[in-house]
Design a protein around this nucleic acid. Structure first.
Length: 419
RNA sequence: GUGAGAAUAGUUCAAUGGUAGAGCCCCGGCUUGUGGUGCCGGUUGUUGCGGGUUCGAAUCCCGUUUCUCACCCCA
């Protein structure tokens, strides 16, 4: 029979890696908790329309990457490709604004995009993110960026850069886009074929192109910052002052663009360096989306947030986080009634809060100790016929090989000393 | 959606047109109540799948599937 495998672009997270996932998730929860953000969990399946309206009909995500389908009742559904739209939907549906004018929410969970898989990119991948809803002031932008930066720092990931930019208000983007098209159209001979196509599809991306001709042309291109309104410009200035307050170094990257339509004013990315990430460099992305709540049927509500990809963090994390496995003991039974005796002793220890493995099947003591050693147990308890008559077992330290006979009453205590 | 590379034992990899092999892992023994190191022995394959060339194909050719990486775009 053909071997079953999981769906393309999806992956299993195995026990040997899970401690890193816990480490990342726990660190994230602890960090955003300190800023008083609270967790929200939303369904993975949402009405298709939520993402079309929220993310934008012409974005790559909606146009060609969405897992969209109709169910047996003919409802149009989609697996969520990102977290923000769902959080805002839940915010509106549950009238969270009636509880407080400011909502601070975070989420962790799987997202789905039907792309061609590559290093650091999956069709089901995990994101964790935070949203600060209801604050217009640049202090909110700064807090969001600071949390993201501090989080990456907490994990011990180095060599990252913070890129920030402002896309201005709703009217800025079309005017700027127009200006870029006019500018690059005159220089078409210098552009690569990709960028000539981008002239139609996404002229902002030309600024990101690494081909020398394009980079040269891009250097003289008009800057989005010159198209900002006075308010947006001041907002951006103020943000940079706040970031200094948080002690965060950053680059202003006027060429940076983001893939979702809903962004206004501040956008930012944290990028990792080196080959660990493959062709991917963005590990955290975020920005402000003042129009989104209204777009989804609420009243105009300023909002800013970020999300990061857990798999990408994992690529940068290395082996650092794998020390979290908890120690455990192994009970071996010997002599008449060996397995039953092992189970009785094991169960007594578990009730005292110790993690214990048992051999399940009869075997020589040698075989049992071998198994104990391979499984990584720190101590072995030999529940032998002889010592059990004295209400005792043999406690063996598997690191040093030292062993002693211990009475059952003090066994748990002695084991704790060794673990 | 486009392009490139890969696919042989559970795993890592050999075998350059002539009998499919090794290390590791696993299991057993040396050691009947003492693991790790050592020694001895053992299990394991439609060479991804389908076709073609050939006396003969893991090897050459065509197709196909899957994986990986890159483009596009993004976390």
């Amino acid at each position: 029979m053909k071997k079953l495998r999981c769906v393309k672009g999806m992956h299993d997270i195995l026990p040997e890696d899970i401690s890193k996932w816990h480490y990342i998730e726990n660190s994230f929860r602890a960090l955003v908790g300190r800023y008083r953000y609270e967790e929200i969990r939303t369904p993975i399946l949402e009405p298709l329309d939520l993402f079309i309206r929220g993310i934008g009909e012409t974005t790559d995500i909606v146009e060609k990457e969405m897992y969209a389908f109709s169910d047996k009742g003919n409802a149009q559904l989609a697996l969520r490709p990102e977290g923000t739209a769902s959080v805002i939907r839940a915010f509106l549906q549950n009238n969270l604004d009636s509880i407080s004018t400011i909502s601070k929410l975070y989420y962790i969970g799987p997202m789905f995009r039907r792309e061609r898989p590559a290093k650091g990119r999956y069709r089901q991948f995990y994101q964790a993110g935070a949203e600060l809803i209801g604050v217009e002031e640049p202090s909110a932008d700064a807090e969001i960026i600071a949390m993201a930066v501090h989080f990456v720092e907490t994990l011990g990931i180095e060599n990252v850069t913070v890129q920030i930019n402002s896309l201005g208000d709703e009217d800025t983007r079309p005017r700027y886009r127009q200006a870029l098209v006019e500018y690059f159209s005159k220089l078409q001979d210098n552009l690569c074929t990709d960028c000539i196509r981008r002239l139609d599809t996404n002229p902002l991306r030309i600024l990101d192109c690494k081909v020398t001709g394009c980079a040269k042309a891009g250097a003289e291109a008009p800057s989005v910052l010159d198209f900002l309104t006075r308010d947006s410009s001041q907002h951006f200035e103020k943000l940079q002052e706040y970031l200094s307050l948080y002690n965060i170094s950053f680059n202003v990257a006027p060429g940076m663009v983001r893939g979702l339509d809903y962004y206004t004013r501040t956008i930012f990315e944290i990028q990792g360096a080196g080959e660990l990430l493959g062709a991917q460099s963005t590990i955290v992305g975020g920005g402000r989306y003042n129009g989104l709540v209204k777009q989804l049927g609420g009243r105009e509500t300023p909002t800013i947030g970020f999300a990061f990809g857990i798999e990408r963090l994992l690529l940068l994390l290395g082996e650092g986080a794998n020390h979290l496995k908890s120690n455990f003991a192994f009970v071996a039974g010997v002599g008449n009634g060996d397995v039953t005796r092992a189970i009785i002793v094991a169960e007594q220890l578990r009730r005292s809060g110790i993690n214990v493995d048992v051999p399940y099947k009869q075997g020589s003591l040698r075989a049992q100790l071998k198994r104990a050693d391979k499984s990584g147990a720190v101590v072995a308890i030999i529940a032998g016929e002889d010592e059990y008559c004295r209400n005792a077992v043999t406690l063996r330290n598997l690191k040093t090989g030292e062993q002693q006979e211990v009475h059952l009453d003090t066994l748990a205590e002695k084991i704790r000393e060794l673990m």
